[in-house]
Amino acid sequence: MEFLRRALNPWGEDVPIGVSWDLIWAAVIIGAVFVVVHALMVPKKVATGEIDESEAKGLPEKLQRHTVGARGFHWSMSVTMFALLITAFFPVIGIQFPWVTIHWIAGVLLILTVIYHIYHVFAKQDFWTMWIDRRDVEEGKLGLKAALGQSDAERPRAGKYPVDQKMFHHVAMIATLGAVVTGILMMFRIDNFLLPMNTYMFSDATWGWIYVIHGVCGIGLIFLVIAHVYFAIRPEKRWMTWSMINGWIDRDRYLENHDPARWTVDGSSQTAEAEGD
């Protein structure tokens, strides 16, 4: 299997022109295998229902997990991401339609969404909720052992985001930023009303690598989205998925899965230290 598409440019230089489309199938197959193996190997965690009543004191029934803004960001990101993946890859696998204009406009919307998200994260100061620290590493190790049946120890409760979700976030962020940065440059190659055409801004080889990076990030996102949507629809994660729709989780879920000391929801312990402080 080849990893790159290459060509001889007019000066006879062998330059990359993009990533090999075989990798699309590699990403789909790896995604499918991941889902099947995970679904078969990892037992659904049954809710124990055991919560520390003392922690529940003073907490309302429903606790806000995602603000309207955060949910808006997530779904706008999701819609643009699907639009980008479909417009990018369907034509390659034979479902042809005029894709370029929809693709770059979806790309611009994604960029606006991401800018809003970054602003929101810094303005609301919840930057640290995604940060991976020592406790997350510990949580991850124990969680993995428990999942593989090598340990009876309970997986410790997480902060706002469990460590696996943080890892997804960071990898998806890198892939998305990679596609965004290269996508902006690729806008100079096509006719659009936002940026002037400037085909010869870089050498052929540099352009080639830009296309390769765009393709690698895009194909990476195929896998990431498969895995992400799979987790979102797993039964034991549905309460979290609902929170991405209606914004809240119930108190029991909160206490069962989250450490109030690491994730302080309004109305929870007054003394708990906010994560990362």
Binding site: R5, A7, L8, I17, G18, R189, M197
Partner: peptide, 14 residues
């Protein structure tokens, strides 16, 4: 190696 030849550039529209 222009778009039509499977590449990533159009030499005729620059």
């Amino acid at each position: 190696p222009c778009y039509r030849a499977g590449g990533n550039i159009c030499y005729a529209s620059t």
